[in-house]
């Protein structure tokens, strides 16, 4: 019962914030609305018994990506940009086509979920066992230890690269 109530509350929040994000003329508010949407989606993951995915979702999307968005929006000084956000006729047509496509997808999803009784993709009961944090941690430090460690080299390379590109002085200090 509580689950259903929570689900609908989160769903309402997610959809409202998503609409708010599109409708709002100021980019900063749009980004903030997007954060609310992403947080409520993280809530869905919690309801689905996948707290790890929820945490990753919040850290990666709400944390890293959105902060980046906000920085870009603020650094670019988009105060007057709101005038440019009016749609041209062509982009209106495109938006309508995209709307139809997504509507079709949504209808298909509802049909599969409620009329065909769900889609079996052969994972069966595995998902509910794999989703929790301890088992992910166990896998990460046993079977997937090597990729996990390689990722650290990858991140190091990315950091070095970012520092090089951001460096002001191009010549070695001599």
């Amino acid at each position: 019962m509580l689950e259903t109530v929570l689900f609908f509350a989160l769903a309402l929040l997610a959809v409202t914030a998503a609409i708010g994000m599109i409708v709002h003329r100021s980019p900063v508010y749009s980004v903030l609305m997007l954060i609310i949407t992403l947080f409520s989606i993280a809530g869905f993951y919690v309801l689905l018994n996948a707290p790890f995915v929820a945490a990753v979702h919040m850290i990666v999307y709400a944390g890293a990506i959105i902060v980046l968005f906000l920085f870009v929006v603020m650094l670019l000084d988009l105060r007057h940009e709101s005038d440019r956000f009016t749609l041209t006729k062509f982009s209106r047509v495109l938006a309508f086509i995209a709307f139809l496509v997504f509507l079709g997808e949504a209808i298909l999803l509802v049909k599969v979920a409620f009329i065909d009784g769900g889609l079996d993709i052969g994972l069966g009961g595995q998902v509910s066992q794999l989703g929790d944090t301890p088992s992910i941690g166990k896998l990460l430090f046993t079977a997937y230890l090597l990729p996990f460690e390689i990722a650290s080299v990858l991140l190091l390379v990315a950091i070095i690269g970012a520092v090089i590109l951001a460096k002001q002085n191009l010549k070695p200090s001599q």
Binding site: Y144, I150, A151, L154, V157, I160, G161, L165
Partner: peptide, 19 residues
């Protein structure tokens, strides 16, 4: 010989090359 390691190798290579 695992798509994961292949992908990580490819990303390490690519990110270094972008810079």
């Amino acid at each position: 010989t695992n798509l994961l390691t292949l992908f990580l190798g490819l990303e390490t290579l690519s990110i270094a090359l972008y810079v």
